[in-house]
Structures are given as C-alpha cells and as structure tokens.
Amino acid sequence: MTPIEQYLAPATLDEAVGILQQGEVTILAGGTDLMPQSKAGRLAIKRTLMNIRRIPELKGIALDNDAIRIGALTTITEILNDPLVKEYLPVLADACDHFASDQIRNAGTLGGNIGNASPAGDTLVPLIVLDAEVELASKPNGSVTTRRLPLAEFFTGPGRTKRAANELLTAVRIPLPKAGHVARFFKFGTRPALDISAISIGIAGVIDNGVISNARVAFGAVAPTPIRAARTEEALEGRRLDEATIEAVASAARDEVNPIDDVRATAWYRKELIHNMTKRILDHVAQA
C-alpha cells in the first residue's frame, strides 16, 4: 500500500549525502512530524526512506571557535539538558522547555524541527533572534561540500526551505552572544504543555547602559514562515526601554504581522497577543 520502495539507514555522512544525490529520498530523523503527516496523507514519502539516526557526525553540541554548533540530530531533550546551551543560549533552552511532551522531546530533533519548516516550529524563532546559520552538506560531484545560510533566510513557505533536494541539514551554528546580550522567548498556546503555538515571539539584543543595540525580533505562527520583523527591530534599536518605547515597539509588532484565522486563533486575536506579549516581555526586561 505504501509507495516506499527502499529503506536505508546509512552510518556515515558521506554515505547519506551519496544516497541523497541519487534523488527521490525522504529523510527520517525522529519521525515525529514525518509519521503523523504521512499517515494523515499530508505528505507523501518518496521512493527511498532514509533514516539518518545512525550517523554520528550529526549528533552533539560543541563550541566551535566563536560559535556553538548543534548537530541536526540532537534531540530537544539533549538541547534542554546541555550545559553550553544553558550557559550561553538560555533562550533556546526556554523554547525547548515549552516544546511538546517528554516523549516527543526524546524523539524529535532540531534538524527535524527546522526541516519541517512549520511557521509554528518552536526552536525557529529563538534561533533566528540568535542569528543562527544552518549548515548544509551535499555530494554533487564525488566529494562532500558544505554551505551555510542564515536561518532567517532559510524558509520559503510552510514546509518549504532553500535546502536543495541533494542536501542534508547537518548542523546549526549560533554565534556566541556578546556581553550584555539578552534574549527572550514567549510561546502562546491554549494550555501550558503539548500545544502548538498560536503565536510565538523572540526578542534579543545587547543592552549597554540601558540602550539596546543589535535588536532582533522574530515571530512564529503569524505568517507562512517564521519571520524577522524589521520594523519592530527598528523601533527598538538604539532605544532605552522606557514606557513610550515599549508601547511603540508593541504597536509596531502588531502592525507588522499579518496572520490568518484558523482553528487555533483568529487573526485579530493573534495581533492582540503579539502586541500584549511583546509589551509584557519588554516590561519584564526593563524591570530586570
């Protein structure tokens, strides 16, 4: 009944990108998106199903010069418990702490969350405000090559990315945050656990003498992809977090997003949440 003709489980990166090169491959990591989606008929698995879970190069979190490199196969649980993440990227740990349930976190991977390219993917918004880059590997003419792309530019639509069919997402690189760096994540679902974001907000920046620079703002679940919000960033950049700025940023955020109505929320309510919660996050930062 299923169209899958072969199932492969390569043990090295080299092998895996070699298989991808042959075309018609669906990549399986934790399967927590892939399996429910294919069962519901929303996604058709291609001729070859390739399980990448045996590839050691895709695992682990390490310092790599002035960046933290997180392998695509790292599970949400591993990110949550990692000391480097806790120390340097607490906002990512916070997002993982609002992610699904223990069972799903144990199976679901960072690469899968990115590869699935849902506008509501919970690691995407914090990674975007952390200036993360994705690392893609392929083997176009006999040898493995890699390229990097800013995550903020990676998504092209729901379930769609700039990854070429012959590429494997191998890792995410996040520059080590500078001194004074502050980042916050907020996810809104109707219940505290096991919910898909109706909206999510990431805000980051460097605070020096009360003034914000390098402002980054991203929103999830308000557009076909997670988005960086340029006009909201502008309202924040170079400002002090006083009441007027906070209100201006929150209003800019509400005006900048253009969400839709669905079973989870109406567009109007999403915009209200974006405003109110952007304000709440900034109020908290200002008070801290």
Binding site: T190, R191, P192, A193, L194, D195, I196, V263, R264
Partner: peptide
C-alpha cells in the same frame, strides 16, 4: 468537524 484530533481538540493536561 474541524478538529477531529487531539492536536486541536484540547483535553486538559496534567499541569493544568
């Protein structure tokens, strides 16, 4: 019926 699944039909979970 727009939400015939536990993803969108929200039962109360333990923390609530």
């Amino acid at each position: 019926t727009r939400n015939p699944n536990f993803r969108d039909y929200k039962l109360v979970t333990a923390p609530e």
